[in-house]
Write a protein that binds this DNA or RNA. Structure first.
Length: 195
DNA sequence: AGAAAGATCTTCT
DNA sequence: GAAGATCTTTCTA
């Protein structure tokens, strides 16, 4: 938990332009412990990123496998930091940030947050107990009140962005696991989790 | 607590 | 027509 002064400080430490211009496994790992912020005229919400997954073009579990573009996955190719929000199972939405240079289809899925600021609004958006607010990719999207209207928006111009933590590392270590909910690509440990 | 089913949209076969 | 980067509710033990 942080107070108002802390959160204002956090807003000033945006990650650099080159942050997403790397292989998604590096980005996914480095995102652990950083702060995801959603700031609009109405709300200011933030959470510590706890779990992520990387997806690439040569990855059979990825929407961008073999570099194939579709109407849905286009934001994955639109340059580093482009927001990619897709719908899963017909009813939920998941948030990703595109990685690597424009034209390469890769991304990092945000899977879990530790709620940090704006808990009251998150609760209103989800009506569940605190521990269930943002512990899943579709849950955190709902808690933040993010909608697909942000899909394909560049991270630099969006109300949704990532900042450095002002504290030293929030987690003791980062563990790697196989990804969740996929039937292919289970040979790589591209799920990163702060413990 | 753990398993199963239901909700219902996009993509690929 | 089936499967999927999921979550919630309901059932069973």
């Amino acid at each position: 938990m942080v107070d108002n002064k802390d959160i204002q400080l956090l807003l000033k430490n945006n990650v650099s332009n080159n942050f997403f211009l790397r292989h998604p496994t590096f980005v996914a790992s480095d995102l652990i412990g950083k702060i995801l912020v959603y700031k609009t005229a109405e709300v200011l919400l933030a959470g510590i990123i706890k779990e992520t997954e990387a997806y690439t073009e040569d990855d059979p579990a990825s929407h961008s496998y073999l570099g194939k573009r579709t109407k849905r996955n286009q934001p994955m190719f639109d340059g580093p930091g482009t927001i990619y929000i897709y719908q899963v199972y017909g009813m939920h939405f998941c948030l990703n940030f595109s990685c690597e240079k424009k034209g390469v289809g890769s991304a990092v899925l945000i899977r879990e947050l530790v709620p940090l600021f704006g808990l009251d609004i998150m609760k209103k958006n989800r009506s569940v107990v605190d521990s269930e607010l943002t512990n899943g990719p579709a849950k955190l999207v709902q808690a933040l009140g993010v909608t697909p209207s942000l899909n394909a928006v560049s991270y630099h111009k969006s109300p949704l962005f990532v900042t450095e933590s002002t504290e030293k590392t929030y987690f003791n270590r980062i563990s790697q696991y196989s990804r969740i909910g996929v039937s292919k690509g289970l040979n790589v440990k591209w799920r990163f989790r702060g413990e």
